[in-house]
Structure formats: C-alpha cells, structure tokens
C-alpha cells in the first residue's frame, strides 16, 4: 500500500515540477511585471526548437543546449520588449492580451514555416533515460532530473530577488515605478532585463519539458492554459507561490488519475477552481 502511494507522490511532484518549469517565466513577466504575456509559451517553444536543432542537426549534448535555449529566448524577447512590449506597459490588460496573442500567431506560423508542422523527435541522452527502483518505488531518471532542475531554479530566483542589489531594484521598480525612478533606478533598463529573464526562463523551461510533452508548432497554444493555471493559483508576484501551486496541482492531478481515473480530465480544473475560490488572489498572492 505504501509503495504505490509514495510512487504516486513522486510522480505527482515531478509532474508539478514540469508544470512549474513551463510557467516560472510567466510568474516573472505576468506575476511580477504585471504584463499579460500570453506569448509566454512562444518563448518556451523557441527554447525547445533551439535545443532540438542543436541536438539533432549539430549533435550537441543536451546540457550544452540549455544555456543557448535560455539566451536565445532572452535575446528575442529583448528585441520584442524594446519594439513592442515596452510601449504597452501602461496600456489596458485587453490591449496587452491582443498584442501577445498576435505574437503567438506570428510565432506559430513562423515555426511551422521554418521547421515544418512535423512532431520533432526528442531523444534524451542515455544517462537521463530509464528508471531505478528504491524501496519498491519506481523512480524515472528524467523526472528526478526535472525535480532537481526546478528546485535549483527556485532557489536561485528567490535568493537572487531577495538578496541581491538587482533583485531589490526589480522589486522596487515593480512595486512603485515613480518612486523607483526618483531613487535613480533605471526603471526602463530594469524592466527590460527582468522581461528578458522571464522569457529566458520560458525558453529554458521549454527545452526541459519537450522530452515529456513533445514539440510542434501548436506548442505555443497547447500549454498556455496550464501555465495560466499555475501562475494564477500560485498568486501574482510570488515565485514560491508558483512552486507550491505547481506541486499541489501535479500531485492532486496524478493521484486523482491513479485512484479515480474516471475524473481524469476534470481534475486539474476542479483543483484550480477550488484553490481560487478559497484564495482568489492565489496561494501567496499579494494583489
């Protein structure tokens, strides 16, 4: 009895970490900067394609592609931020929605044009495949790796935002732009870097996730709902909130599917509704 339970907990937590990795970038751009960035998964998709191209066409090792996935997504986002996003920081949510949906359309069409509509083959190196058994619990290596990656990213982000000078500037700029500007903080610059950070994380999340969720041009739409669910239930402005919410969503989803498979497709939405009705601002939401 204990064996399956622990196994389900591990699988659920690992699934939650997958969701977290996909959405952590959004909890920066939407959560902290308050920009309705529906194009988040386009940046994730970009990261995925960078990883796939480097691995399959140039034979790079998987780990070497990860920094490039981050950088590529961040670099593209800097251009978009300077040209488009920046001008809408003070616009209505609805205009932000429309802009970013437009970007999603363009990115999906571009991906289909460049890479074709085909499902990209994603094969991980041998040492990340397979599984081992610990005390009767089956642990998949790649899932364990995802858990580690998610924990590392959370630690770095939370520490970086709480304990560094730049982190303090970001928090200041996000909380009160005018005051921050008055204190001599280059708000425009800080926003640009923060936005690049969020998009880079999206790219990284995308390249880590594709081994499980696959990659084709519709990626930018398919996972949008999931990342919105994680960020809203976690609460805007809180990386830790997204982490906890993703873990809870993952565990309840996998446990539910294991014990009550008839409810399989309803679970994640039911859990989200329950959490939001209990705490409309999200678990650790400030606004």
């Amino acid at each position: 009895m204990i064996g399956p339970l622990v196994g389900v907990l591990f699988d659920g937590f690992a699934y939650g970490m997958l969701l977290f990795l996909l959405s952590v970038g959004l909890s920066v751009t939407l959560g902290m900067m308050n920009f309705v960035n529906l194009a988040h998964c386009s940046f994730a998709m970009l990261g995925g394609y960078v990883t796939v191209s480097l691995m399959n066409d140039l034979g790079w090792p998987f780990f070497a592609t990860l920094p490039l996935a981050f950088l590529a997504a961040a670099a593209v986002s800097v251009v978009l931020e300077r040209v488009l996003y920046r001008r809408l920081y003070r616009a209505s949510d609805l205009d932000q929605c429309l802009l970013t949906i437009g970007i999603v359309f363009v990115s999906v069409a571009s991906a289909a044009y460049i890479y074709g509509t085909v499902q990209q083959p994603v094969q991980m190196p041998d040492y990340l495949q397979g599984s081992f058994v610990v005390m009767g619990v089956n642990i998949a290596v790649y899932r364990l790796f995802l858990v580690g990656a998610a924990l590392a990213i959370t630690l770095i982000l939370v520490a970086g935002l709480e304990y560094t000078r730049f982190g303090a500037q970001v928090r200041a700029a996000v909380d009160n732009q005018r005051m921050a500007r008055g204190l001599g903080i280059n708000v425009g610059g800080v926003f640009a870097v923060t936005f690049a950070l969020g998009s880079g994380l999206a790219g990284l999340g995308g390249s880590l996730a594709i081994a499980i969720v696959g990659l084709d041009p519709s990626f930018a739409f398919t996972y949008l709902i999931y990342v919105l669910i994680v960020v809203s239930t976690g609460g805007l402005g809180s990386i830790g909130g997204s982490f906890v919410a993703a873990a809870l969503l993952g565990i309840s989803d996998v446990a539910g599917k294991y014990y009550v498979p008839q409810l399989g497709s309803f679970l994640i939405y039911l859990v989200m509704l329950g959490m939001l009705m209990w705490r409309p601002a999200g678990l650790f939401g400030k606004r």
Binding site: I212, Y258, P261
Partner: peptide, 17 residues
C-alpha cells in the same frame, strides 16, 4: 480498462495502474 483525457501531458498515473 481505463480512458485517459484527450489533453494529457503525463501518463505516469495510468501506466502505473
């Protein structure tokens, strides 16, 4: 027998069953 959701990114629970 079991049926899983059409949009289902993760199969671990069903395969374990």
């Amino acid at each position: 027998s079991v049926r899983f959701p059409v949009a289902n990114p993760d199969f671990s629970a069903f395969v374990q069953r």
